[in-house]
Amino acid sequence: MTDNKDTQAAEIDRLMQSLDKLTRRQARNQRAAHAKGLLQGICSMLRPTDVVLDCGANVGEVTVPLAQTGAHVHAFEPDPFAFAKLSDATRDFANVTLHNAAVGTTTGTINLMRAENFYDNPRGASVKSTVISGGRKIDETTDNSIQVPLISLPDVLRDLHATHGQIAFVKMDIEGAELDILEVMLADGLFDIVRLTVAETHENKFKALRDRFKVLRAAVAKAHPPTQVNLDWI
């Protein structure tokens, strides 16, 4: 009888885990569909005089649609593998400025760490490359890390605003590094110089940062509507 109960309990646990995985996958798919629709709406409203930033451009899946609008696109991608693909994807666009660098809150160099399976699947794994320690399934050994340039995104925003006026759009998908930047943008009023900022936050990937992400989300929601700052990009 005890064995049957244990077996039933194990099966229930397995089913609950499967249900949780399906629920999370459905939520992610819904967010992806929303982000795709949002990007289409953004592109439909961009003008050639607009300036937009794609931070964490990877191979150019967002950069290219932005470039097709005629707006001037600054695309930032630190991983050399992804940057090569990004360069190929945007080579015919004179309105794209590429930056082979990570973005942060300071300028210098920083250690870029890659996923454990990077060399098995560099295209798929390159989206996980990060400058933040403690991420899930990230190889932090020196064999799988490289030094890359680091650019202060707050400084870039200030400089572009001084030259061009309001920045039309900023997208951030930078595997945890968005936390420091978003905190600075909120504290320094930099969201006000951007028409729309979207970011994917990575609290699920960085357990130690979850409390800070929670505080940030609450503060941003209090200060700005989601039509100006959207932290549910994917």
Rank of each mutant, 00 (worst) to 15 (best):
E140W: 06
D159F: 09
D139S: 06
A199S: 15
S152A: 13
F206H: 09
T201A: 06
I151F: 08
A162V: 03
E183V: 01
G189H: 03
G189C: 02
I138H: 00
P149M: 02
L179H: 07
A162F: 07
I181Q: 03
V170N: 09
N144V: 08
D159Q: 15
V148Q: 01
D155C: 00
G165C: 02
S129M: 04
T197L: 12
V184P: 07
K171M: 11
H164Y: 14
K137I: 11
F191N: 12
A168E: 07
T201Y: 09
E203T: 08
V131D: 07
V156N: 02
K128N: 14
E203N: 12
V131R: 06
D173W: 01
E175I: 07
V194C: 11
T163E: 15
L157H: 04
D192R: 13
V148Y: 02
G134A: 02
D192C: 05
A177K: 02
S133Y: 13
T197R: 08
L196Q: 10
I167M: 01
I132M: 08
L196H: 09
I138V: 12
E178F: 06
A177D: 03
E183Q: 15
T142W: 07
A162C: 11
L182R: 00
D173V: 05
F191M: 13
G165T: 03
T197W: 08
V184A: 14
N144G: 04
A168V: 08
K205Q: 14
R195T: 15
